[in-house]
Amino acid sequence: MDASDIAEWLRTSSRPAGKRGRRSILRFWDPDDYVRFLNALRTNPSGAESGFPRGVRKLSLIRAISCWAGSRELPPSLAGRAYWEEDCRVRVSALPKGAIVTDKGIPWGVKHIQAPLAWSRTTGYRVKVGVIDTGVDFEHPDLHHSLERGINLLQRMTLPQDDNGHGTHIAGTIAAANELQGMIGVAPRSTIYPIKAFDHNGSAYVSDIILGIEWCVRNQIDVVNMSFGMKTRSKSLLNAVSTAYRAGTLIVASSGNDGRIGDIDYPARYGQTIAVGATNQKNRIASFTNRSGLVDVYAPGDRIVSAWLKGKHREMSGTSMATSHVTGAIALLLAMKPELKPDQIKALIQSSATPLKNGKALRTAGELNVVRLLKAAEQL
Rank of each mutant, 00 (worst) to 15 (best):
H313C: 13
L334S: 01
S352G: 05
R372Y: 06
N358T: 14
K357R: 13
G359F: 11
K357N: 12
P342R: 10
Q344F: 03
K346F: 01
K357W: 12
A329K: 00
T364I: 12
P355E: 09
L362N: 13
V371F: 05
L340Q: 07
R372L: 12
H325T: 00
A322N: 08
A329G: 02
L334G: 01
G318F: 13
R372A: 14
S324I: 02
M336S: 14
I345W: 04
S317G: 09
L333F: 01
G328P: 11
M321V: 00
G318E: 12
P338K: 01
A347E: 11
P338F: 05
G359N: 13
K360I: 13
V370P: 04
L333P: 00
P338Y: 06
V326E: 02
L332R: 03
A365F: 07
M321G: 00
V371P: 00
P338H: 06
G318S: 13
L348P: 02
L334C: 03
K341L: 14
T327M: 13
K360T: 14
G359R: 14
R363L: 15
L356Q: 06
G328H: 10
A361W: 13
G328V: 07
I345R: 03
A329L: 05
H325C: 08
E315H: 08
A347D: 10
I345Y: 04
R372V: 04
V371K: 08
D343T: 08
T319H: 09
L340P: 07
A361V: 15
P355I: 05
L334I: 00
M336D: 14
A335P: 02
L356R: 02
P338W: 05
T319W: 10
L333E: 02
A329P: 01
A365N: 08
T354H: 04
H313T: 14
A329C: 06
L332Y: 03
S324H: 01
G366V: 11
S351N: 10
A322S: 14
G366E: 11
R314G: 11
K360Q: 14
L340R: 06
R314Q: 15
N369D: 10
I349W: 00
R363P: 09
A347G: 03
K337I: 08
L333M: 03
